[in-house]
Design a protein around this nucleic acid. Structure first.
Length: 518
RNA sequence: GCCCCGUUGGUCUAGCGGUUAUGACGCCGCCCUCUCAAGGCGGAGAUCGCCGGUUCGAAUCCGGUACGGGGUACCA
């Protein structure tokens, strides 16, 4: 590999490479690195890119940026694919589904990057730099001290063949840097408007490590160019790398990489955790899988995430923050995205999710509950016909009262658990099953024994019998009358409606649980 | 240090020169009620970070400034 004499940067890049216009068919993408667990900020970025593509009837590409073997993992990759499918953010092109521009994992594209690097080198857009870390550090410190920008100072930009040979002889391994043209960089951010970086603040950057591996700074724009990406929606953390990408695109146009169009960029705000800190991958509240385990619906979570920076336009002055994915797609306009960071509020997320649970019909809720009951060990896998019948009868009791599906599991536990494992919350027992409470339970046993043998064991007969025995005869207020029965039978002071619960539990189990506390 | 981004009730958000500053979550009260929810009604909570300017008029436009965040890496 021999470097050809470098053309001066200003001669090298002449004319302006056009930015994509409004008439170009949209190709958007989502390209996470497979490190750690998928997190909510990532899901929000995926959602916005996806909604943007779908709104414009364009294509959506799902690419994986695994260029750092020391941090990437296959587990993380599998999780990413799993979670995208769970969320329902489908892709037209990308990992697992393939497409005309594959492969879609960067770890499988080394030859592509090697070729691009060679072209850049050959045309003088990139060069080898032999600075050691110590040398760089020293010069950076000096620049800072003098109030100058601290990026690369370009010392090895124009090394002679002799100088290079001398460094090689010393055993120094070069990195490859991109030669930034000396000009200001302006782009019109889709969410923030025009942004300008002065020439002096964007220095030559490394595109290939000394060990020969390409960096994100190269692979990301390379693949975007090769895959024909027209719109790049990504986190604001990489906003300041945009001038470099544009510069790379201009060089690509000269060396025949991609289609000669610069994409539009839109930088999405952060999703923050409690306080003011960025939600990190290690933070439990950022873990997407955790939300699935708790029983968030994909549509509920996505709706809430959409609200972090975007809102459905008001219709006739009516604002609405519960909407379907289809409604979001129809209305999505990236220029309406709010540029300031948003805090993730679990309470509101649950509230929105609860609204989505209520939007589902009962049979749907019932089906979605199954995996959660199985995970809790309450029903078999696959569910038996009997369990299924019980669940579909019980679903309406919890449908209106949960924010997340996991709560339904807790409320329905008493119906599915076998008697050996049935337990009563000790605090509730102490409160409700004192001497007076046990008197109530005795009376309830008497009343319930009288029905269900020859008469029907049903919600109205149960309610009738208990009201007569406890409210009328014992003269108790309803809340005092039914509390002890509720705790004895369901194990908790909080439960689905009592009479319906007893009907579903059945006469013998109900009586057994009541007698058990006496 | 240098560069970039941001700033409307506790939180999210509407707002694009003229509004009693919108809605939601949360909070408080009431209604409903067998618990918990859901639902209904009502309430508290924001001089729109601050200072100047433009304008008859500014949350909205301009300039500063403060604070927060990001970048300044052979991480992404």
């Amino acid at each position: 590999m021999t470097d050809t004499p470098a053309p001066g940067p200003s001669e090298a890049i002449t004319g302006t490479v056009p930015t994509v216009g409004d008439d170009v068919p949209v190709v958007a993408r989502f390209c996470p690195s497979p490190t750690g667990n998928p997190h909510v900020g990532m899901a929000r970025t995926a959602l916005f890119s996806w909604a943007f593509a779908r709104h414009h009837g364009g294509r959506f590409v799902f690419r994986i940026e695994d260029t750092d073997a020391s941090r990437d993992s296959q587990e993380s990759y599998d999780l990413l694919v799993d979670v995208m499918r769970w969320l329902g953010l489908d892709w037209d092109e990308g990992v697992e589904v393939g497409g005309p521009n594959g492969p879609y994992r960067q770890s499988e594209r080394s030859d592509v990057y090697a070729d691009v690097v060679q072209r850049l080198l050959d045309a003088g857009y990139a060069y080898k730099a032999y600075d050691t870390a110590e040398e760089l550090e020293e010069r950076r410190e000096k620049a800072r001290a003098e109030g100058r920008p601290s990026g690369y100072d370009g010392l090895h930009r124009d090394l002679t063949d002799e100088q290079r040979a001398a460094y090689e002889a010393e055993g120094r391994k070069p990195v490859i840097r991109f030669r930034m043209p000396a000009k200001d960089w302006t782009f019109d951010d889709l969410v923030r408007g025009p942004i300008t970086f002065g020439a002096e603040n964007v220095q030559d950057f490394v595109i290939v490590r000394a060990n020969g591996q390409p960096l994100y700074t190269l692979t990301n724009p390379t693949d975007d160019a090769l895959m024909g990406i027209t719109h790049v929606l990504r986190g604001e953390d990489i906003l300041s790398s945009t001038p470099r990408q544009i510069a790379l695109y201009e060089a690509f146009a000269q060396v025949g990489v991609g289609q000669g169009l610069i994409p539009r960029f839109g930088h999405l705000p952060y999703v923050l955790g409690q306080g003011n800190k960025k939600l990190s991958k290690r933070d439990p509240e950022s873990n997407l899988l955790g939300y699935r385990e708790q029983g968030f619906l994909p549509e509920g979570l996505l709706n809430y995430l959409a609200l972090l920076g975007w809102s459905l336009p008001a219709v006739d002055g009516q604002e609405r923050d519960v909407f379907t994915l289809e409604e979001m797609v129809r209305a999505f306009d990236v220029t309406r995205v709010n540029p300031n960071p948003a805090r993730f509020d679990l309470k509101k997320c649950e509230a929105i999710n609860g609204d989505h649970v209520r939007l589902l019909d009962a049979t749907d809720v019932c089906e979605r509950l199954v995996p959660y009951l199985q995970a809790a060990g309450l029903v078999a896998d696959p569910v038996t016909a009997q369990e299924h019948a019980m669940l579909s009868a019980a679903t309406p009791l919890v449908h209106e009262r949960v924010g997340v599906l996991g709560e339904a599991v807790d409320m329905l536990r008493f119906l599915f658990i076998d008697e050996e494992h049935f337990t009563i919350d000790e605090k509730d027992r102490a409160k409700q099953l004192d001497e007076a409470g046990l008197d109530v339970v005795r009376a309830a046993v008497g009343a319930l024994e009288s029905i269900g043998e020859t008469t029907e064991w049903s919600c109205p007969t149960i309610e009738g019998a208990l009201r007569v025995a406890l409210v009328d005869e014992l003269g108790l207020k309803p809340r005092l009358a039914f509390g002890p029965v509720r705790v004895a039978v369901t194990g908790s002071r909080i439960s689905p409606p009592l009479f319906e619960s007893l009907e579903l539990l059945g006469r013998s189990r109900t009586l057994a649980r009541l007698r058990a506390v006496l």
